[in-house]
Design a protein around this nucleic acid. Structure first.
Lengths: 193, 193
DNA sequence: ACCACAGTGGACCCGGCGGTCCAGAAAATC
DNA sequence: GATTTTCTGGACCGCCGGGTCCACTGTGGT
């Protein structure tokens, strides 16, 4: 399948349209017809660009969204070298999810994990990269003498990832962002102590 | 709808069978026909006991599972009055989810949240009760002088809930229980410091 | 013994959704 | 400008799954 410039544009339009739609609705209930309508395309095009149908399209959306998640935290996430930087990162995460409300792109991915095998790998990769950045940040703080050397950077980074994921999940379920804030603040406190 | 003893038994059989099945499979893909087959019943019975169909049945399952989640952590969760008790609780949570692997009853509930309104309330209530017990534990430890009074019990309890939820979610996505352990250990460490 | 109502089984209906197919428009290649 | 390839539109199909219906079988009360 060789794509022309026009073809690539259409394919991208489908992915981004589907992503936006999945972000704002129950992923399980989204149909190809919805996406067709939203993106102003036709069934023919969807299956032209994604021969394996829904699964392939959703996987492409998952990859697209996974990249967005980390991009939205930059440049803060990439340079956690001072307490002020940590606070800025914290604020950016809170702000992002606060704005997004209960509609989480990652949630859409997660719920696909069970069904499609490739999705698990996308989520896994995202989580790894995320945790890596946090761990780097902790280690840099340790080198700068700002965090106690006894702290296990890998372990605390893992706790951050868990706390954020859980906080977002609670946000999705209850609409309250308190848990996300509590998790971030408590763990940053822990680093400071 | 007056239920005889037999009726109640059948109704319960449906709920428990459905719960077990939902626990071990992708919730979104489970059909009434699956449940009918598993529980050895018929369509007629399902709609006899759950007139509103799938939604009502799933809600009943959700309530059933929500109770189980807390019951499985007892008696530890109800008496977090010493460091040893906290460790036992930690171990029981890890053991439970380790045994359960990537199949999480709460996950099934969560993915229903978007669709059915009642599910949100069930999850919300579960999370509240859970967090309440943890908070009580922290406060008791403070009263006993084992935890620094400066710790905000409510906030740290919220962080625990977030950490556990996130840890379980990572477990579901990647199959690794490391994040759950890291979250619990880091937060308990935080209390100890 | 009878009757009323709970319990049970399963055939059936119908709408929705993923997926197929093909014909025609646009565009690249020569 | 002819031909080949890509792109687009939409009619159509088949299956699957939730829900309905009704006939039949217990079962408990009087």
């Amino acid at each position: 399948m060789a794509l022309t410039a026009k073809g690539r544009a259409t394919r991208q339009r489908i992915i981004e349209g589907a992503a936006a739609y999945l972000r704002s609705d129950d992923p399980a209930g989204v149909t190809l017809d919805d996406i067709r309508a939203i993106t102003g395309t036709s069934k023919g095009q969807i299956f032209h660009y994604f021969p394996d149908g829904k699964e392939e399209l959703f996987l492409a959306v998952a990859r697209f969204e996974a990249d967005r998640v980390l991009d939205d935290q930059q440049p803060h996430l990439g340079a956690l070298t001072s307490w002020a930087a940590w606070d800025r990162w914290r604020d950016s995460v809170i702000a992002r999810y606060h704005a997004q409300g209960r509609n989480c792109p990652l949630g859409a991915l997660m719920s696909q994990v069970g069904s499609t095998p490739g999705a698990a790998e996308v989520v896994s990769s995202l989580l790894n990269r995320w945790q890596f950045h946090v761990r780097e940040g902790i280690e840099e703080m340790q080198e700068a003498g700002l965090v106690r050397p006894g702290v296990d950077a890998g372990r605390v980074a893992a706790a951050f990832i868990a706390g954020i994921q859980g906080g977002v999940q609670v946000l999705r379920s209850t609409g309250s962002i308190d848990h996300l804030e509590a998790a971030l603040d408590t763990l940053i406190d822990h680093l400071r102590s």
